[in-house]
Structure formats: structure tokens, C-alpha cells
């Protein structure tokens, strides 16, 4: 029973981390219709920014996190404005360009910090203990931040004027532009929020996992899983799917064994795509994407 509860809590915290990872990715696709292959790279850059501020400059961890968010958001803003925006209507072109950005991001971190994994502790080290169940403070903090970030993105998109404008641009860019919305301001901003979330995730999560130039691949894969499973562009879908992925990984890991967990997940996704191509919660036809 103790093992079951520990596994459930482990799965939920893992799921919350995955939700945070997938959030920015899902946002970029939901608003810009861009599959951001550089999402993992932004995560890594965020992680290294926080590491650099905390460990090498010697400022508090909180400042590191803030710099990570602002830095990745700024890079994302510039990248959208000067690169993606020029080919925004060509889905294949945006994939290729974000792939390019991902290569550049990984390579830059490699040349600045080396191939060795960085010793990054983060700011929180304690552990909560309820009966036989252990939960590190950092994970509780990640769950809280994930909840806040999801709520903030949801409110931004559905309860604010900017959110309405963004969704209008997604639905019918030409018409929205004719109505006076400015994609050259709003789209870079949306992409900056998405990459800023990736940076935030990197700053918070890399102390839990590991920080090396290419750990972003795993994050990218998790994001793929979550958004395919949840339905491309569906924020609630991505969140629910992330938690699901976390739970499956924890349970299969505990009761079946290592490499079966990802295999079951990935195969499950292929099967799901056959049965229900729009994902668990997606209702739009993505077949004509």
C-alpha cells in the first residue's frame, strides 16, 4: 500500500513536471500553429541560465529563475519576429527552422558549458514526509508553479483581450488583421511566452533531473507525447495527458520494469492516432492541418 501511494505521488509529481514542460510547446502550437522543435533547447538554455546566475555568478536561485524566464522569452521573441514570422504560413518551413534553432541552442550550450552534466542543486533541498511517503520540497514547488502557470496561461488566453486577439489570429489571420489586430506584435509575444515557459521549466526542473546540453531531447519527446495524446493545440488536453504520462511511467516503472514504460506509451499513442487522430480532447480535425 505504501508503495502504491508513493508510486501515485511520484507519478503525479512527474506528471506536473511534464505538464509544465508541455505547456509552452502546446501554447506555441495552439496559437502560432508552429511545432517548436527548439522547445527542448529553450528548456536547456533556461536551465543553464539559472545555473550560471546561481552557481557561477553567485546570486540567489530565485534571481536565476527570473533571468532564465526573461532570457529565453527574449530569445523566443526575436526568433519569432525575425525568422518564424517570415514563413509563418508554411508548416514544414517552421518545423525546419525550429530544428535549426534547436541545433544552434544545443551547440551553443555545449561550447559554453562543455559536454559534462552541470552540478546544479537548485534552491530547495528539503523533503516532506507523510508517514512512509517522501516528497522533496522542490517537487511540491514545481507542482505549485505548474498549477499557477497553467492557470495563468488559461486566463491569458480565455479571459483577456490579448487572449481573444491571439485566438482570433489563430482562427483567421487575414480577417483578424483586417480587424486591426497586429500579428507582428502579438505572435512574437505569444512565442516569447511559450519559450519563457520552457525556460522557466528548465530553471525549475533541471535540478531535479539533470542539466547537460542535450537533455532537451527528452523534454521535446515528452511534449510530443503530451500534445499528441491530448490533442494538438488543446491546453487542457496537454495537461491531462502529461499527468497521465507521468502516472503510466511511474506505475509501469515500479511494477513492470524500465524500458517497457516508454514503449507502452509510444505504442499506445500510435494506436490512439489510428483510432482517434484528434487526440483525447482534441475536437478539431487535424487531418487537414
Amino acid at each position: 500500500m505504501g508503495e502504491f501511494i508513493q508510486t501515485t505521488i511520484g507519478g503525479l509529481t512527474l506528471g506536473a513536471q511534464y505538464a509544465l514542460m508541455a505547456l509552452g510547446f502546446s501554447l506555441a502550437f495552439g496559437i502560432l500553429r508552429v511545432i517548436n522543435f527548439a522547445h527542448g533547447a529553450f528548456y536547456v538554455v533556461g536551465g543553464y541560465l539559472a545555473y550560471w546566475i546561481t552557481n557561477e555568478v553567485g546570486l540567489p536561485y530565485v534571481l536565476g529563475v527570473i533571468v532564465a524566464v526573461l532570457g529565453t522569452a527574449a530569445i523566443g521573441y526575436v526568433f519569432e519576429l525575425f525568422v518564424i514570422e517570415r514563413r509563418i504560413d508554411d508548416h514544414l518551413a517552421t518545423i525546419v527552422m525550429t530544428l535549426g534553432a534547436s541545433l544552434i541552442g544545443g551547440a551553443a550550450m555545449l561550447s559554453l558549458f562543455g559536454a559534462q552534466a552541470a552540478q546544479f542543486e537548485g534552491g530547495l533541498t528539503g523533503t516532506f514526509r507523510f508517514g512512509g511517503v517522501f516528497v522533496p520540497h522542490a517537487r511540491v514547488m514545481i507542482i505549485a508553479v505548474a498549477g499557477l502557470a497553467i492557470a495563468a496561461v488559461y486566463l491569458l488566453l480565455y479571459k483577456t483581450q490579448v487572449g481573444n486577439a491571439l485566438r482570433a489570429l489563430t482562427d483567421d489571420r487575414e480577417m483578424a488583421v483586417a480587424m486591426g489586430m497586429r500579428p507582428k506584435v502579438l505572435f512574437p509575444m505569444a512565442f516569447a511566452i511559450a519559450t519563457g515557459l520552457a525556460g522557466l521549466t528548465g530553471a525549475l526542473v533541471t535540478p531535479q533531473f539533470s542539466l547537460a546540453p542535450f537533455v532537451g531531447e527528452h523534454v521535446l519527446m515528452i511534449s510530443f507525447l503530451a500534445v499528441i495524446l491530448g490533442g494538438l493545440g488543446s491546453l487542457p488536453g496537454a495537461v491531462i495527458a502529461s499527468v497521465l504520462v507521468g502516472l503510466v511511467e511511474a506505475f509501469v516503472g515500479t511494477y513492470v520494469g524500465g524500458s517497457w514504460a516508454p514503449l507502452i506509451l509510444f505504442t499506445g499513442i500510435l494506436v490512439l492516432l489510428v483510432a482517434r487522430p484528434s487526440g483525447l480532447l482534441g475536437h478539431r480535425t487535424i487531418i487537414d492541418a
Binding site: 511545432i35 487537414d288 492541418a289
Partner: peptide, 8 residues
């Protein structure tokens, strides 16, 4: 599947 979905 088409476009972005096929790639994913």
C-alpha cells in the same frame, strides 16, 4: 495524417 501531424 498531413502536414505537421505526419511529421510528429
Amino acid at each position: 495524417l498531413r502536414g505537421t501531424y505526419f511529421a510528429l
